[in-house]
Structures are given as C-alpha cells and as structure tokens.
Write a protein that binds this DNA or RNA. Structure first.
Length: 592
RNA sequence: GCAUCCAUAGCUCAGCUGGAUAGAGCAACGGUUUUCUAAACCGUAGGUCAUAGGUUCGAAUCCUAUUGGGUGUACCA
C-alpha cells in the first residue's frame, strides 16, 4: 500500500472516529503540496467540512492530529486555510525508492488481457507524405506504443487508399507527359515521382477549365466538362472493369509509391502489423447495408438509394448506398470495420484520423451501434488538428506542402551542424556520427510534434527552425547522455543495490516525481495522449539537471553509500527517460 | 443556418475528474565553467486565462450567451 492510499484510508477512519460520519472515498482529495509550504501531501478539507460540521481550520487541525497519531510515516502537519499539509518522513521516500523504483520491474505494467487496434497513416498512393502525415504517423505509432506499455495487446494497422479518381489523375498525367519516366531513369523517389504527375495533372486541368470558361461555360460546367477529368473518370471505370492496360499501369505506379513509402516509414521509425488495401475492400459493406435494411435501421428511397435517418440523434439523413447500388465512403467503412473485427476480435479500435472527419466517424460509430454491433462501443476516433503553415493550409496538388522526406533530411542536417559546433563527439566513427545525427534530428522533430495535445491545431513555420534547447527532444536526449556519462565515470554498479542515506529536499522531490511514472503511462494511455507523457519526461529531465547542479560532484564523493545512492537515483532517471522516450518513438543516445 | 473543436505571457505550449499567490520553454536582460557533458543551471522581467453572466465555500477548469478563428454539414475518399 502506498502512502496516498494509506492516508486516504486513515482519513475515512478519522472522520468516522471524530465525527461519527461515513465519508465517501471520492471526497478525499489529495494533491502535491505547493513548494512554498512545508510538507509533501496535502488534503483539501473543504469536502470534509460538510461531515465535520466545523470550520475548515478546525477540521484540518483535528484531522492532522489524528493522522500524525495514527500513521507512522506522517511526522507533522500544518494548516493553511482549508488545506492540511502533511509531512511524510524521508525514510518513507527513501524506502519507496529503494524498494520499488530500484526494482527492475519498475514501470513495467502487467498485461490486462485487452486487445486494441490502432489504425493510422492510411496514405493515398498518389503523392508523397507531407508534414500532416508525419503528425498522423508519429501520433499513431506512439499511441500504439503507449497502449502496449500500459498492458494492452496492440495491432497496428495501415489501411492504404490505393484506389479512386485521385490515383487515376497521376496515372493519366504520367501517360500523357511522362515519356516513360521511372524512378530509376529520373533518380526520383517513387512517391515523389508519382506526386509530380499529380501536380502536373492539376495544372493542366486548371488550364482546360480556364479555356472552357473563356468559351462561355460556368466554373461548375467547366470543371465537369474538361477533357482531362472525363478521361480520368473513364480510366477509373476501366480500372473497375478490369482493363488490363490500366491495371498494369496502376500496379507499376503503385509499386513505385510503396517503395517510396517504405523508405519514409523507415526514416520515421514507424511500422505496421497488417496492411489493408482499399482496392480489396472497396466493395465491402453492401452486406452490412442489407443487414441494416432487414433490421429496419436503414430505409430505401423511391429511387432505390439507401439511407439512415439520424435526425433524432441531432445529425442528418445520411446516404449509405447509391441508387445504382454502388458504395460511398461510409459503405466501405462499415464493411471494413466489420472485417477488421472479424479478423482480430479486438476490444477496442482506434482510428487516428484528422479532425476534418469528426462528423464521418460520429456517424459511422452511431450506425454500427444501431446495427447492434456489440463491439461498436470500443471504437474511438483519435482526432487531431491539422498542421498549418503561416501561409495557410497545405495542398499537395498545388505543391504547397512541407515534404516529409525533405523535413527529416533538414532536421538531421541541423542536428549535424549543432553537434559539430559543440565538438563533443569528434572521436565517433562516421557510422556512429550519422546514427547520432539521425537520433537527434528526429528526436527534435518527433518531440516537437508530439508534445502538443493532439486535438490542437499546429502551426509550423518553415522559416523558424525547430528548437534544440528547452522543452525539446534533444534536451531530454542530452540529459540521458549526461547521466550515462556520469555512470560510466563513476563506475556505477547496479548490482550493489540499495543504499541507506539521508536525502536532500531535491532528492525527495525527485523520488516523488519518478514514482509517478507508471501512473503517468496509464493516464496518458487512457486518453490516448503522448503529449502528457512528453511533458512528464521533460519535468523528469529538468529535475535531474537541477539535482546534478545542486549536488557536489558525485564522481568525487567520498561517502560511498551517498555516492552509490545518487548514482542509483541517476540510473533510475535514465531508465525512465529511455523507456519513456522509446514510447514516443525517440531513441536516446548514450553520448552526445 | 446547424454541428463541432479551439482561444492562457511578445511567440510556442502545460495546467488531471473545480482547490492555495496561473506554470514551463523560446525570445529579452543579468549571473554561473581550474569540480562528474553549459544542448545545462540560477535570477530579472513579462498575465483582465477572449468577453459577459451563472453554479460553488472556491472557476483558467463546469453551465449559458457573445466575439474571433478552424473544420464539417457531398450520391469525393
């Protein structure tokens, strides 16, 4: 039993004993004592006043006296207004550290038997990844890792959007203006090559629209009648009809894109357990529509189209199948949801998708619930805000994007320059150097994107470089490297175990902060927020640096027990930073 | 129009199911290295928590309205 539980239980007993009342447990409100007061744990007594029928000060004093009397570890108290500040003996904090934090199992959370699917990335195969996709990938990956760390079994899934009119646009433009260009002949990465033709299509298409408008058509007419878009639509029909030439071209160009994505994914350090392809799943969902009609959840309009009426739920009527029997987006998603459940029987499923699809997922989940799918309540949409530039939204077809590969390369180059300027790793081999620059560059980028709460939109200014100082990835990486260096120099031997010493105020604060790590993981996983973990790790790193500066050089410490204890403290900190950053997908170097 | 998200220091962000005098980083200014990595540490300065009401012993946090911004409201995906 930890001290918080101990205090809670004793408080209930105290209220019973002092006032003869049964205090509900949720009325015991504990918090960390603010730095300016004595003590470590504070009880907010206002809720208890209702039961004691005495003033906050008197209640707090009586409760304080009782707790000092009855809990061995509580050595003193003081009352400020309605706040009862308790001092807990240093010996308690030291033994907490020695017995729990020092244990090799610390931070490892037992499997909870729950299986959860995280679907993320889900790219279109007509263009390369940009910064928005980077946010998605990092978020999806780290949420999956976070869930694993908190005891879930996790399946990472990528549903590739490899079909549709947008793919045909790239294909058509390549056919017309590509002159047989390939990744090999051009030296371009496959996804970039295909993306190039997507941009060309848009340019030519716009020209045609302008020409038609000059010939007297309205904007709307021109958009529909432009020869290029008609050709693209024809191509999509041919594709669905199984036309050999189109299918061959599609396969060729898709393979270029996949080769390109593989490289980008590898650079970002993300991976998947299972890929689904829309070219295989786009016909799914019609069975679900039948099911819905039978159950009376859907209804048919006179023209034969199928709908669901969600007006009673504050939403609109929604089409689920066209009059000609072809599917729309939500039809497919109904079908793939069922398929994924049949494949994995997971307890929960998380869709990592931007917030522009909030409405879509609200509708999707509601429909599945109305269809009586018991698993529908385990579906979550992890909605995140867009990444915007100072100039506004990023648009692939207009070429106004921050390209993922370029950005990663830039970050690594910046890391290289900064590291070289500091000159601390001149003895590294070339491979070691390049691995280090990679870690630091990506660490800065990943932390930058992950430290912000997912649902907030993110402004990225390419002209301002991402920081390497302060609340950043490199700062935490640096702290880890610093600790490793210290442990090496001091000849740290973990096998020596615990040490009995007198701890300082900072050390006690440090122990309290480090002890929160497992709870932090669980809390962050519960709300799918790597950001809260990131901010916690920053606090840990800051705390260590404060400690490091305050305490005299540990390497030179003559009191062996004290020296060993401080190394223990450092080692536990390094362990938390390493596993915590690992969850964020960030590698911490041994030296930098 | 309706729905939904956001608004905290010059900038970027924390602030948990309501708790004490709202915190960090960057930028600015000042200081710290013959001692374990200065990508660090210490300090100064910087706030009408968008606005107005309400609930409460207590509101940045909950409720309502207003303002400003994003997104959605497609027989596109």
């Amino acid at each position: 039993m930890n001290i918080e539980q101990h205090i809670t239980t004793a408080t209930l007993a105290a209220v019973k004993h002092l006032y003869g009342q049964d205090l509900p447990e949720n009325q015991v409100s504990l918090q960390d004592t603010r730095a300016e007061f004595d003590g470590q744990i504070t009880i907010v007594v206002f809720p208890i006043v209702r039961f004691s029928k005495k003033s906050p000060e008197i209640t707090a004093t009586e409760l304080g006296e009782y707790l000092v009397e009855n809990i061995e570890e509580v050595t003193a108290f003081n009352v400020i207004k309605g706040f009862l500040n308790l001092s807990v003996a240093d010996s308690y904090w030291l033994s907490l550290f020695n017995q729990e934090l020092l244990s090799p199992e610390f931070g490892a959370i037992k499997p909870n038997g729950k299986k959860v699917m995280v679907e993320y990335s889900s790219p279109n195969t007509n263009k390369p990844l940009h910064l928005g996709h980077v946010r998605n990938n990092l978020l999806g990956y780290s949420v999956a890792e976070l869930l694993k760390a908190s005891g879930h079994e996790v399946v990472k899934v990528n549903l590739v959007n490899d079909r549709g009119i947008h793919i045909c646009k790239s294909m058509l433009a390549w056919q017309k203006w590509g002159n047989g260009e390939t990744p090999e002949s051009s030296g371009l990465k496959g996804d970039h090559l295909v993306g190039k033709y997507y941009v060309i299509f848009d340019k030519e298409y716009k020209k045609e629209i302008e020409a038609l408008k000059e010939a007297g058509q309205t904007e709307e007419e021109a958009k529909k009648n432009a020869p290029l878009i008609l050709e693209a639509q024809k191509m999509l029909q041919d594709w669905e009809a199984g036309d050999d030439a189109v299918i061959t071209l599609w396969k060729t160009m898709n393979s270029w894109v996949y080769a390109g994505f593989e490289v980008s994914y590898k650079n970002l350090g993300v991976d998947f357990d299972k890929y689904y392809y829309e070219s295989n799943t786009y016909l799914l969902g019609k069975g679900t529509v039948e099911e819905g009609l039978e159950k009376g959840v859907f209804f048919k309009k006179p023209d034969g189209s199928v709908w669901i009426d969600l007006t009673a739920d504050g939403l609109d009527q929604k089409l689920v199948l066209r009059a000609d029997g072809t599917s729309v987006y939500i039809t497919q998603d109904l079908g793939t949801a069922q398929m994924k459940y049949d494949d994995f029987h997971m307890d929960e499923s998380i869709y990592v998708v931007g917030n522009e699809q909030d409405y879509h997922f609200k509708v999707l989940f509601l429909i599945l619930e109305k269809l009586g799918k018991t698993w529908a309540k385990g579906l979550h949409h992890l909605s995140y805000g867009m990444v915007d530039l100072p100039s506004g939204k990023m648009k692939s077809r207009e070429g106004t994007v921050v390209d993922a590969d370029d950005l990663v390369a830039e970050m690594i180059e910046t890391a290289k320059q900064k590291t070289e300027a500091l000159g601390k790793v001149n003895d590294f081999s070339e491979e070691e150097k390049s691995a280090l620059y990679n870690n630091i560059g990506l660490g800065a980028l990943k932390y930058f994107l992950l430290k912000v709460e997912p649902k907030k939109r993110l402004l990225f200014d390419p002209s301002e470089s991402i920081d390497f100082q302060g609340n950043t990835g490199p700062f935490i990486q640096y702290t880890h490297a610093r600790i490793k260096s210290l442990l090496n120099k001091a000849g740290y031997d973990a096998a020596k175990g615990a040490a009995e010493v007198v701890i300082t105020d900072t050390e006690r604060e440090m122990i309290m902060l480090l002890a929160k790590y497992p709870a932090e993981i669980v809390a962050a996983a519960k709300v799918f927020s790597p950001a809260s973990l990131a901010n916690y790790l920053y606090e840990v790193a800051k705390m260590f640096n404060k400690f490091y500066h305050e305490v005299p050089p540990i390497v030179k410490e003559e009191d062996e027990a004290l020296k060993h204890h401080r190394l223990n403290l450092s080692a536990v900190t390094a362990g938390i930073l390493k596993t915590g950053m690992r969850i964020l997908g960030i590698t911490v170097p041994e030296r930098m």
